[in-house]
């Protein structure tokens, strides 16, 4: 475990806590894409199939349980909580994510470390995580304005994958046979998707104006 990866896990955890805080405190999920949250829940459920079989460390096991539980809690809130579900922008959150799920699954069948159930689902979760933010970015573009908490949520989420890429570079140079091509390439694509958001976020911070995404 190196500092970059630990920082990446922490920014990832913070992004989820920001979202839970926003939903719990404001009892509203306006501006949040349910589809992105469902994709993240699917990412964690398919990635941590080895939760009970491969014990790596207490830290890993605890974090996996926290990620699965929190992502399911967010989806449950947005679908079932009587107050929260009313504020869901149903007609703005129209990204057809089922095609993305299908494409990632087909890709995982073709490109994986080993053709086993666990490895195919692991690769699937890696590809899916790279594009899971798309419905959220589309929703932000549609709704135009980005409220602070949602903006910070996306910012921390982007920082997490960016830190993971630094972690992979670090491990590549410090460990002999370290290669994670699938995760690296997919992580680069994922961080690239955030790049334009980061740009507008930086502009809004620099010019001290409300974050506006070009429609």
């Amino acid at each position: 475990m190196n500092i970059f990866r630990f920082a990446g896990d922490m920014t990832h955890l913070i992004s989820i806590l920001i979202l839970l805080l926003k939903i719990y405190a404001t009892k509203s999920c306006a501006g949040i894409s349910l589809k992105t949250q469902e994709l993240y829940a699917l990412v964690f459920l398919t990635r941590y199939l080895d939760l009970f079989t491969d014990y790596v460390s207490l830290y890993n096991t605890v974090m996996k349980i926290v990620f699965i539980a929190s992502s399911l809690a967010i989806v449950w809130c947005m679908r079932r909580h009587p107050l929260v579900r009313r504020s869901y922008d149903k007609d703005l959150d129209t990204f057809r994510h089922q095609y993305v799920v299908l494409a990632c699954f087909v890709l995982a069948l073709l490109l994986n470390e080993k053709f086993t159930i666990q490895e195919v689902f692991w690769a699937f979760s890696i590809y899916l995580e790279a594009v899971a933010i798309l419905p959220q970015l589309v929703l932000l573009q549609r709704s135009g304005n980005v409220d602070n908490l949602t903006g910070q949520y996306v910012l921390f989420l982007g920082a997490y994958r960016g830190l993971y890429i630094i972690n992979w570079i670090y491990r590549y140079f410090t460990e002999d046979h370290f290669t994670r091509w699938i995760a690296c390439v997919s992580g680069l694509v994922q961080t690239g998707l955030y790049a334009d958001f980061f740009y507008y976020y930086y502009l809004s911070w620099k010019t001290n104006t409300k974050l506006k995404l070009p429609a």
């Binding site: 990866r5 896990d9 990832h12 990635r47 080895d50 491969d54 790596v56 460390s57 890993n60 974090m63 996996k64 990620f67 470390e113 080993k114 692991w122 993971y164 972690n167 046979h177 994670r180 995760a183």
Partner: peptide
Amino acid sequence: HDEHHEHDEL
């Protein structure tokens, strides 16, 4: 034994 490829990251 073959190098047990475990995913040690999250």
